[in-house]
Design a protein around this nucleic acid. Structure first.
Length: 999
RNA sequence: GCCCGAGUGGCGGAACUGGUAUACGCGCACGACUUAAAAUCGUGUCUCGUAAGGGAUGUGGGUUCGAUUCCCACCUCGGGCACCA
């Protein structure tokens, strides 16, 4: 017998499979299974061993499903538009189109030697005009749609026009830009064509707008956030070249993904994705429910002469309407439009303008740096009126309020919000408590009391006074009730004297109350206590005599604050320390105080009631923003729109698509920040849009194209879509959690609204492969010189070894370092299998081998289904070890073994399959079924424990009763010693597992 | 700071729903084959102890007849978000 020659075998079968087209998929034949890899961006660098990990896993899965009788769609293609291709082209001075073709070739060559079962006849490429024709087509559908919030779906923009003509926009409940003004049908009809189009633009799901970009004057180009660094002075500069970068407002295209925020959130529920990815998407969408409240603006008479401007109320968004009585100022984002409206009424105009300018020049990074101190300026001369109590509060602008979230304005409640608290402390603003923390649960028959608790300092050594209850051995501060007409400080001084005999004077009243519920053990009553905290100081160290009863109950101890903190366990007491230390900010829910009629009710109830009381409304907000859908680059899909001389926009008709990228010599940035297309005369002359689509456009729908890749009439035929439907198994890296996976869900939901696809969610099941790190534990990168090339592995060990090893090395979703040493184990495994073929006989296997074959088959089938490939391989290794111990193996059993291994090692199994006389490809054979009867053991070994420690093993047969098993256990010679002279309290028997004797 | 996830031999890792911890592979040691080496095969390999037995799943507690698994606190690492009111 010759040795296992992987080179010969793999080459031979790859050629054979190709010739026979065994991986071709035909639409509409039997039950379907769509197994998809995230298609790659074909870079010029080539693959490292980490890349194929996902492809191998989906290939194993697809191969098993195919053998199980599914009609499997398992395609591959290329996502080739985008910045990397453009930069590669610039660097190598070749046209991106040519670079892409070259890279695709390299890529395909590297993939082909791994033996993946792709149907290459369905290959797609996003840069192919035949493909991006449909990307443009979908864009136009989105452009020509608006979102009806009542029907909760996208509708044609034409229908909106009809509504406008009939009744204006008053009754329209749509997702639209925030600045649309109301108009009647009559007013609508008076608008010019351009006016009408401008208004419709605010409703479209793909719309033109403006946004800030990072502009680098010297380079004449727009930079992404990660292309910017800070120089020595902390100013933003370009990473390459170190040229200054500034903010610039530019024209952009957007996608109104926010219209789908709620559907994208709720749609997650039904998906079989990892919780991790769902969590990331949930956070990204960032739903929060709160209230929108209105603060009226009052203008001070100090402004001479008073310029009264029509100022609408200031809207704020808050999730804590219950804290409104503690709102001691309001804050606007510096960009808030009201700042401009109020300009002439602001007394300190210059200061404000200076501040706004300062903020504008900061980069996003500066503004969001974690240790950054909050800054702000008060708008003097104007005040806001708290709608809950009618009191005037100052208005500030500050950089800690974001213009882009909520209403761009907040009511500041420093007592109950950490950010407001920090700001208020810095600028000495009022802090007013309106919610009390609550300790202990309310009980029936509570007696209600006001009380004080006191920190008492002894100036001579800085220690503090505590009392120790003799009965309970607990440390606490002095507590006492506040009598009628007493203030907390006086009550504290009196209580300290009565309980301890010390005379004190007042230092501070912290003015912060806490509500607690407890049982008073001496007075035998339930108490609801509202306590205030004060700090006192000894006047002299002489201790006067105290009441005898008091003295019996507790003694005085003097401790440093640190000592006390360690001794005290009561959470309410500990909270007092925090108040003392100036962390007077309580962000949890509690019970309202200082809140007029609302005092005493819970935070939760108050949120609704107060919102109603002040005439606000309950609203839902999302962190997610609309997605920018434009790049100022050459290498992307052209946006199929034409700008007319009168300022209107005309979209392309379907028959005129695709709008192809002009074939130009130079695609270098033209220096105005616009796309290089703006420098192409013929293009500009036609009025074509010069922005191109972003990288995520083509990848947001490619999974639909595979279903019907050559269709020139539709992006895919209805029939094909209805047959293949959603992707059953989607495999790719988790770095796409908030990009591709969100955008494609958005597009698919949109296409569903349009009736183009019969399902909302495109990816039913998702698996994310972990990264393969270099042997040094770092990421594989040319930079570290630690890249391992799969071609070398395939050459030295074979594709099957690479496949087995990558599946075996660890849990699929976990990142793991590559080990050059360990791969030999996978090769040895295949070597052994190759040798086993000599043991194949035409007779039946011995019983033990047959049994383990069926057990392993069950495990492998289940493990592949669950993507637990490492344990599947491991169980097959155990099987091989067993077979080696046996003198021979029956042909039928060997066949079953080859079949279960075939998805992992398609070449060697095909070879051995042929060697034992099979004519048809193993990959076209039917996945074997395990025989339930064959995997039941007649006798098994179980452990016997005494008091939870294993002391013996016994062999039991399947028809023994529990009594018999217990009996055997007790009589076992190892056990007898352990239970000698002891009373047996209990015997626990877990069927087929364990006997535990408790003595 | 907040929200997730993970900590098991020299290494990658296994352990079903709470039931014999360390499967499988790598490495290492010894042995067989060989003039020799490689390859291959066999045996051993958590730790302390001659043994009986004891101790180990990041640390400390708890629940349980029994905990890698459940609960509480803490430590370390990885990921996500980061002034989202």
């Amino acid at each position: 017998m010759k040795n296992y020659d992987h080179k010969k075998i793999e080459k031979k079968w790859q050629k054979e499979w190709d010739k026979n087209g065994i991986y071709k998929t035909v639409n509409g034949k039997g039950k379907k299974m769509y197994v998809l890899d995230m298609f790659p961006y074909p870079s010029g660098v080539g693959l490292h061993v980490g890349h194929p990990r996902g492809y191998i896993s989906s290939d194993v899965y697809a191969r098993m499903k195919s053998m199980q009788g599914y009609n499997v769609l398992h395609p591959m293609g290329y996502d080739a538009f985008g910045l990397p291709a453009e930069q590669y082209a610039l660097q190598h001075k070749i046209h991106p189109r040519k670079a892409v073709l070259e890279n695709v070739k390299t890529f395909k060559k590297q993939l082909s030697i791994i033996g993946l079962s792709y149907d290459w006849s369905r290959e797609v490429n996003t840069t192919d005009p035949k493909y991006y024709k449909w990307t443009q087509w979908i864009f136009l559908q989105i452009y020509n749609s608006w979102y009806d919030k009542t029907k909760n779906k996208a509708r044609p923009i034409k229908e909106l026009e009809i509504i406008f003509e009939k009744s204006g926009n008053l009754k329209v409940n749509a997702s639209c830009s925030f600045d649309v003004k109301f108009f009647s049908a009559k007013v609508w009809s008076s608008f010019s064509k351009k006016d009408k189009q401008d208004i419709l633009m605010k409703y479209r799901l793909a719309y033109e707008g403006h946004s800030e970009v990072n502009w680098c004057e010297k380079m004449g180009t727009v930079l992404a956030n990660d292309e910017i660094v800070n120089d020595a002075k902390g100013n933003p500069v370009s990473e390459r070249g170190g040229f200054p970068v500034e903010k610039k407002i530019m024209r952009q295209w957007f996608m109104r993904i926010t219209a789908y925020a709620d559907r994208l959130l709720s749609g997650l529920e039904g998906l079989d994705w990892s919780d991790h990815i769902k969590e990331i998407q949930k956070n990204w969408i960032g739903k929060s429910e709160g209230s929108e409240l209105e603060f009226k603006i009052s203008i001070s008479s100090e402004v001479q002469p008073p310029k009264s401007v029509e100022v609408g109320p200031l809207k704020v968004f808050t999730t804590r309407a219950d804290t409104i009585f503690g709102a001691t100022y309001v804050v606007l984002a510096p960009e808030h439009p009201l700042v401009n409206t109020l300009k002439s009424n602001i007394l300190n105009q210059e200061e404000v303008i200076k501040y706004i300018k300062l903020i504008k020049n900061k980069t996003d990074e500066d503004r969001t740096k974690n240790d950054k101190e909050k800054t702000g300026v008060e708008l003097r001369g104007v005040m806001a009126i708290n709608p809950a109590n009618g009191k005037e509060v100052p208005i500030w602008i500050a950089d800690y309020v974001l213009a882009t979230y909520g209403t761009g304005a907040v009511m500041a409640v420093p007592a109950h919000d950490e950010r407001d608290f920090e700001f208020a402390k810095k600028y000495n603003l009022n802090i007013k408590q309106s919610v009390m923390p609550v300790y202990g649960n309310s009980v029936k028959g509570e007696e209600y009391r006001y009380a004080v608790s006191a920190f008492v300092k002894r100036p001579s050594d800085g220690k503090y006074l505590f009392i120790k209850a003799k009965e309970f051995n607990q440390i606490s501060k002095v507590y006492g009730g506040i009598e009628e007409g007493e203030n907390p400080v006086l009550a504290g001084i009196r209580e300290v004297f009565e309980e301890t005999g010390y005379k004190t004077k007042s230092v501070t009243d912290f003015g912060f109350s806490i509500q607690s519920h407890f049982h008073h053990p001496h007075k035998k009553v339930n108490r609801k206590l509202i306590s205030d905290l004060v700090e006192l100081e000894l006047i002299d160290e002489e201790q006067y005599e105290v009441d005898e009863e008091e003295a019996l109950l507790h003694e005085v101890v003097w401790l440093t604050l640190d000592q006390a903190k360690k001794l005290i366990t009561n959470p309410k007491e500990l909270y007092d320390f925090e108040i003392r230390e100036g962390k007077k900010c309580f962000t949890d829910d509690g019970v309202l105080c200082n809140s007029d009629n609302f005092s005493g009710i819970s935070s939760e109830a108050a949120r609704m009631q107060i919102t109603e009381f002040v005439g606000g409304k309950i609203v839902t907000k999302y962190k997610m923003r609309d997605a920018i859908f434009a790049r100022q680059r050459y290498w992307g899909e052209p946006i199929p729109l034409r700008h007319n001389l009168d300022g209107t926009i005309t979209e392309f008709k379907e028959k005129d698509l695709p709008l192809e990228l002009p074939n130009v010599k130079s695609y270098v940035s033209i220096g105005t920040g616009e796309s290089p297309l703006a420098g192409v005369k013929s293009w500009v002359k036609e009025g074509f849009e010069t922005n191109t689509m972003p990288g995520w456009a083509g990848s947001s729908w490619y999974f639909l194209r595979y279903m019907d890749p050559l269709n020139s009439k539709q992006f895919a035929s209805k029939k094909a879509i209805e047959y293949w439907r959603e992707v059953d198994m989607y495999v790719g890296g988790q770095e796409h959690a908030t990009g591709h996976l969100l955008y494609s869900r958005f597009w698919n939901n949109f296409l569903f609204d349009l009736g183009c696809v019969p399902f909302k969610e495109p990816f039913k099941r998702l698996k994310n492969q972990g990264m393969i790190l270099a042997t040094d534990g770092r990421k594989m990168s040319k930079r570290w010189n630690n890249v391992i090339n799969p071609d070398d592995i395939v050459n030295n060990y074979g594709a099957d070894t690479l496949r087995i090893y990558e599946m075996f090395m660890g849990p699929f979703e976990q990142s793991l370092p590559w080990s050059t040493d360990s791969i030999i184990g996978s090769r040895r495994f295949l070597d052994r299998i190759y040798r086993i073929q000599e043991k194949v006989t035409n007779t039946k296997s011995i019983l033990g081998v047959e049994k383990i074959i069926h057990k392993t088959l069950k495990k492998v089938s289940e493990d592949i289904e669950n993507f637990a490939f490492n344990t599947a391989v491991s169980s097959m290794m155990i099987l091989v070890n067993e077979i080696e111990k046996s003198e021979f193996i029956g042909k039928n059993d060997f066949k079953i073994f080859l079949q279960m291994l075939a998805p992992f090692a398609p070449h060697i199994t095909e070879e051995l399959w042929g060697n034992i006389g099979e004519k048809k490809s193993i990959h076209k054979s039917s996945w074997p079924k395990w025989d339930k009867k064959k995997i039941i053991d007649d006798v098994i070994k179980i452990a016997v424990q005494v008091n939870g420690k294993v002391r013996a093993e016994i062999i039991i047969s399947k028809d023994m009763t529990e009594e018999e098993i217990k009996d055997v256990s007790l009589k076992d010679k190892n056990i007898v010693n352990w239970i000698l002279n002891k009373e047996i309290k209990r015997i626990i028997y877990v069927p087929n597992r364990i006997v535990n004797i408790v003595v």
